[in-house]
Computed example of a mutant assay.
Amino acid sequence: MTASTRPTPRNRALATACLAAALTLTLAACGSTGGPSHDSSTRGTHHGGTPAATAPAGHGSAMSGMPGMGTSAGGDGLADSADGYRLTGPDATLPAGRTAPYRFTITGPDGKPVTRFAPEQTKRMHFYAIRSDLTGFQHLHPTMAADGTWTAEPAPLAPGSWRVFASFTPGGGSGGGKDLVLSRAVTVPGEATTTALPPAAHSTRVDGYTVTVSGEPMAGMAHPLTARVTKGGEPVTDLQPYLDTYAHLTAFHRGDAAFAHLHPTTPVHGEHGGPELSFHAELPTAGDWRLFLQFRTGGRLHTAALTLRVG
């Protein structure tokens, strides 16, 4: 080795210092890469892990404070099973023209009846009945026996093909906290008379009230929808809370009776709501949807129905 290449104490010290500096920079770079990527996976998220940036504009704070906003009711509700849960019942027919109970059970992934349900808009179970021509709408809250058997008591049904829906959130197990909607077909014997679906319109009247809906939802896209309630041309401001909101809005698709629950985003402040009510609309398919808006005034429940065209 020549004198020009022989390491000196001074050179060895410089090399050691450079190696230490390089190692420090490498470790710092690794730390800065790992830290923020972990934080960003939880920063600004809503319930269910949906990033805030993907939430519909103008709905973040209102929706997060409303019941049932953690998850949306999955699917179109046209199946009797989903995620291991199944809607079962002994009756495929119900009598025409008279009251008769409809009993059913929700079984879990283990095949056993589910008895733990989390409240969604103050109720552990929402039960709907609709005829194939989208008439005869009923929204009930059945009672559950200790063995997990639910009993709904719909008003007398007209002859025809019906579909009954159970909307619920399991209180535990693999589906705990997830909204589910299951349904079964039911036949009401007799001569059925089909009613034509009213044409699409932006307003309808019920019990002296006029309900006007604004918004142009597109299939498969989240979109705000607003309903305004008036009476005699004057805005209604005495809407009373119903199911922990000022209005409940449900929709069914023409042709297959696919189900959609349009979640309210207007927060409840006391006993005097209205005249405008906002909803988070996400209708999965194009076509005509029959909307049923339920609201309460003076202790009486009103149900307004109109047809909405979805592009």
Rank of each mutant, 00 (worst) to 15 (best):
G208V: 10
D238E: 15
A57P: 03
S4I: 04
A222W: 02
T16G: 10
P90K: 13
P224F: 13
T151S: 12
A304M: 02
L225A: 05
V206S: 04
P154H: 09
R290S: 12
A146H: 10
E216G: 02
L87M: 13
G298K: 04
P9W: 03
V236C: 04
T42E: 04
G299V: 10
G84F: 12
T2H: 07
E120L: 02
F252E: 05
S183Y: 04
G65L: 02
W150M: 07
T212D: 01
F292V: 04
G148T: 10
T297A: 05
T115P: 08
G108A: 15
Y246P: 02
A73P: 14
T169C: 06
T5H: 09
L14S: 06
P9K: 08
E191M: 11
L243F: 15
P264D: 03
T71D: 08
G220P: 07
S183D: 04
Y102M: 08
T5Y: 03
R6C: 06
A92E: 09
E276N: 01
S278A: 14
A158V: 14
L157Q: 13
K231F: 00
W162R: 04
A304R: 00
G232N: 14
R116S: 14
T16L: 09
A52C: 07
Q240P: 06
A3S: 10
H47K: 09
G311N: 14
G35Q: 05
L306A: 02
A260Y: 03
R6M: 15
M1I: 03
M66H: 02
R131L: 14
G208S: 10
G49K: 00
S161I: 08
Y128P: 01
A158R: 13
T107M: 06
P90N: 11
T5F: 02
L225N: 03
L243R: 09
R254M: 00
S72E: 08
L87S: 12
P56E: 13
T122L: 08
G175D: 12
H263L: 06
T303W: 02
L283A: 00
P154N: 08
P9C: 01
Q240A: 14
G177W: 12
G74D: 15
G70W: 10
G233F: 05
T45S: 04
T50W: 06
F168C: 11
T297S: 06
R12F: 01
A79P: 05
A96D: 11
T226E: 06
M63G: 08
H248K: 09
P7T: 06
T88D: 15
L243A: 12
I130E: 10
G176R: 11
D39C: 11
T149M: 09
A286G: 12
D110H: 12
H272V: 05
A219V: 10
P56M: 13
L78T: 11
F137E: 00
A118D: 14
A185V: 08
H126M: 03
W162D: 09
D76V: 06
G176C: 12
L277H: 00
P9M: 02
R309Y: 02
D256F: 00
G77N: 07
H223K: 14
A219Y: 08
D244H: 14
G175N: 06
E234N: 03
M218H: 15
L140K: 07
V164I: 15
G65Q: 05
G68C: 05
A21K: 00
H47S: 08
P224L: 13
V310I: 15
F127T: 01
V213C: 04
L27Q: 12
S183P: 01
A82D: 11
G48Y: 03
E216T: 13
F168N: 10
R116K: 14
L25A: 11
